[in-house]
Design a protein around this nucleic acid. Structure first.
Lengths: 111, 111
DNA sequence: ACGATATATATCGTGCGACGACCTATCAGA
DNA sequence: TCTGATAGGTCGTCGCACGATATATATCGT
């Protein structure tokens, strides 16, 4: 518990928002969602998946074999779904405030 | 170098966007900017200030004594200013994309 | 035929960064 | 007098990010 909502964790949740994905699929979707800025490494992904699972936000939902390779799928729980929504709202509010601060400020720094 | 733009770092930069502030003032402004969600502890603040200084994003700008208490002021450099602007744009893009994903999705998870 | 790249899973060790605990000091108010 | 707000700072712990590594199959270029 006492789960820390980092940006990586948020991106993983977001990647699962529209549909379940397998590990590698999550990595690709996170890369896409972040415009290539965030590239999840294997260590980050599986550690995250464990913690997200422990927090009850993500759960495994079946396996599949494609071309002889195993695919392990994960999906959002209701808790996870609520968390993504809430975090998105928080981020949106912050970004809005930041934009307002940046546009209404004097030239630079403050001499 | 190889500075990691965490949310805490971003909030500190943002708190300095409109004018220079002293340590305690930064803590208060970050609390305000984040609607009380992020409360910077002393350890986080000064570690951050060191790293931000090392990355050339923040610099000290004079001291002042008010009511017998020392105030040490910090301000953004041009690098820091550019970084806040860029990070805000990145966050805005991400939030926009996230909102679109969340509104255009099927009921829940995937059943 | 061979090596590189992509797909796919997972573990481990390192090191940075967040955070609380702690310390000092002044001033206001109860 | 003593608590809480203001103001500065250090230190140790530990969670988390991340790269390295391992295993395995398929594809593509040379």
């Amino acid at each position: 518990m006492t789960f820390r909502m980092t940006e990586q964790a948020y991106l993983v949740l977001l990647s699962l928002a529209d549909r379940p994905r397998h590990g590698y699929g999550i990595v690709q979707e996170v890369t896409a969602l972040s415009d290539g800025a965030t590239r999840l490494g294997a260590g980050t992904l599986y550690g995250l998946l464990d913690r997200l699972g422990g927090a009850g936000m993500v759960e495994p939902c079946g396996e599949e074999v494609v071309d002889g390779r195993l695919r392990r799928y994960y999906r959002l729980t209701e808790t996870g779904s609520a968390a993504v929504t809430a975090e998105t709202a928080r981020l949106r509010a912050l970004t809005r405030r930041a934009t307002s601060v940046l546009t209404n400020r004097p030239a630079l720094g403050g001499v």
